[in-house]
């Protein structure tokens, strides 16, 4: 299968008053054609920044792409001139944002907001674009699209706005769809509808999806592969099955333990992960998670672990998994 997107050693920082926030620190992953990949992590773990960097939506300054490459369909995006990047955005890569209440222009009709991209990228005439917009609204399950098309966002409910956002993102049949917490701002029943919609549309169109979320339930529903991010780094990747059945990083394990389970007895309390993520203005020298980790060793504080391959698909960045971890740790103690 063709590789759609390849992110290599990407680092992004933000220059703020207090110093340099290293939001993303050396992230590498790839997405294959037709694959759905989830990026999971808590707030501030760098998942949204990663996604927006792929689209080059980070405003610079204060943002700064320090190093790395983003190859989309063989083409390097980070060095692409702005004009050509505009041809990629919306056309080859579509994006859905978190909050449908604020992501649509309140003073423009829904139809026009869908048609804009079509007219720009597909060089469609106004009437053709309108026909296609009606088709798209039908496709995302909005009733009466002919009349809905001339309405404004405030006539739409939250769920319907997110459907409209999906219609915008998919309007030009992009090869890759980035969904940045698409259901976080919606209530649970609507969440399920939107996810089902995205899943069906993926089946129909065969787009690759990057789904950014902190909700593991969504991941189990939607994705083939999972990337777990923490403090600007990827700490574990694997297939959905591997991550849910056989998580190896203490953070991933913690995330799963903090979720309620159906087979859990009523009195059994959920286990939270204590503490807070590290300050990324001064990222920790060693493993980012070690201050919250129950299994932390001495070496965890001083050196960042490399990835350990556990299978063809699962990799984890943890000293516990490295054969020489204990030995190196011992050395560190005697030094």
């Amino acid at each position: 299968m063709r590789t759609m997107l390849e992110v290599n050693d990407l680092s992004v920082s933000f220059d703020v008053y207090g110093g340099e926030v290293q939001a993303v620190r050396g992230v590498s992953f790839s997405v294959k054609e037709g694959e759905a990949v989830a990026i999971v992590g808590e707030s501030g773990s760098g998942k949204s920044v990663t996604a927006q960097t792929i689209m080059r939506l980070i405003s610079t300054p204060p943002g700064r792409i320090k190093q790395g490459s983003v190859r989309f369909d063989g083409q390097e995006l980070l060095s692409l001139p702005e004009k050509e990047m505009q041809r990629v955005r919306g056309n080859q890569i579509g994006m859905i944002f978190q909050d449908p209440m604020t992501s649509l222009n309140p003073t423009m009709t829904i139809g026009m907001q869908i048609m804009e991209g079509l007219m720009k990228h597909q060089k469609m005439s106004r009437s053709d674009a309108k026909k296609r917009a009606i088709e798209l609204l039908t496709m995302v399950g909005i009733p009466n699209p002919e009349s809905r098309i001339s309405q404004y966002p405030h006539h739409f409910s939250g769920g319907m706005r997110q459907r409209a956002m999906i219609a915008i993102a998919l309007s030009c049949n992009p090869a890759l769809l980035i969904a940045d917490e698409p259901t976080t701002a919606l209530d649970v029943t609507i969440q399920a509808q939107i996810l089902r919609l995205m899943k069906n549309l993926q089946k129909q169109t065969g787009t690759s999806i990057i789904l950014i979320t902190h909700d593991l339930g969504i991941v189990a529903d939607m994705c083939d592969r999972v990337i777990v991010m923490y403090a600007g780094q990827i700490i574990e990747t694997g297939t959905k099955r591997e991550i849910f059945r056989n998580p190896q990083h203490p953070y991933t394990k913690g995330l799963l333990k903090s979720l309620p389970r159906l087979d859990q007895s009523k009195n059994e309390p959920l286990v939270p992960i204590h503490g807070t993520p590290p300050d990324l203005i001064q990222p920790p020298q060693g493993c980012g998670f070690c201050s919250r980790c129950d299994y932390a060793m001495r070496i965890c504080q001083t050196e960042v672990p490399e990835f350990t391959r556990l299978s063809d698909t699962q990799q984890v960045r943890c000293w516990l998994q490295q054969s020489q971890g204990g030995i190196r740790g011992g050395k560190g103690a005697s030094a």
Partner: peptide, 8 residues
Amino acid sequence: KTAKAKGL
């Protein structure tokens, strides 16, 4: 941001 993501 949405407008930018559309490639305008």
